[in-house]
Amino acid sequence: MRDIPFSNCERDFIIQAIEQRSRLDGRGVYDYRKMQLTFGEDRGCCQMELGNSIVMTQVSCEVTPPKQTRPSEGILFVNVELSPMASPTFEPGGRMSDFGVELNRLLERCLKESRCVDTESLCIMAGLKVWTIRVDCHVLNYDGNLVDCCSASAIAALAHFRRPDVSVSGEEVTIHTLDERDPIPLSIHHMPLCVTFAFFSQGKYLLVDPSLKEEKVMDGKMVIGMNKHREICTLQMSGNMLIMKDQVLRCSNIAVVKVTEITELIQKSLQADSLARSKGQPFGFPAAIETRKVTANEKKSEVIDVVGIEEKAEQIVQCAEESDEERRRRRKKRRRRRLE
């Protein structure tokens, strides 16, 4: 579908606001929108909300033959899905837009080339069988800055994921089910996270975490992929503008702070999730729904008549037992008939 048109008056206003150091949603220049991380009931499922941008990531695994060039390493596969549900401008079907390709490549570079996941530990039998880890990011709603949202949700999902245990004896490989042996977490060395900077008026003004409207007005953007040890994993600039060297350095200093914050948030949510799981408290998406919202439905508690409920239950149980006995009798009869 066609893009929702953007009027000149909105464009002018946003630039005017940025020049006065204020943003449409009342944030500061270096502030992120409200970030929220929820884990699903399944391992490796995670939903990241950054303001109104929502991305859900699911990690899955399967056993495949390795790549010829790297016979003793597992494979990490990253995929971003832009469905028209997220924004009417995204086209349905398999073909990806330029924006989708850019996002996918950036995420792939951030996760694969930073070697954050130890692929060698994913090898089962060198040259024959390895684990392929698949990361699927589904964009559920688009309100700008998908890169940061996708990268944070992808790494959080990877950290949350558990793969089934395997044992190798000679040529035979056994994959143990979840009941037999506890599944194993992936070994993750560090958490690379992307931070996006938008530039306006030829690099004169910069904003962290641009929203959709700000993204439409910006001259260009720079994405810094970084982990909390201050190691830069990716750096990409797009758009037509030139920026100064010290501007880049300033951005990387801001990125350090932001990455530390986001890493902390991910760690905290992971801990809260594992605590809830081990204690048997409710976890997953249903537990994360707030009932005190206008958009949430809550059923009021009803008064239930409990008089004579025990006798009723006993009756039902008796009926069930009787019917069980009848069934057994019938089965015996049938067997006898067959024998005759």
Binding site: C9, F13, Q16, A17, Q20, S22, R23, L24, D25, G26, V294
Partner: peptide, 23 residues
């Protein structure tokens, strides 16, 4: 809704006030 206040800051405040009054 198009809205214009006296200053940029006031306009932003007005837009947010209108947007959040839905419920």
């Amino acid at each position: 809704i198009w809205i214009k206040g006296r200053t940029t800051k006031e306009t932003i405040a007005l837009t947010n006030a209108i947007a959040c009054a839905e419920y």
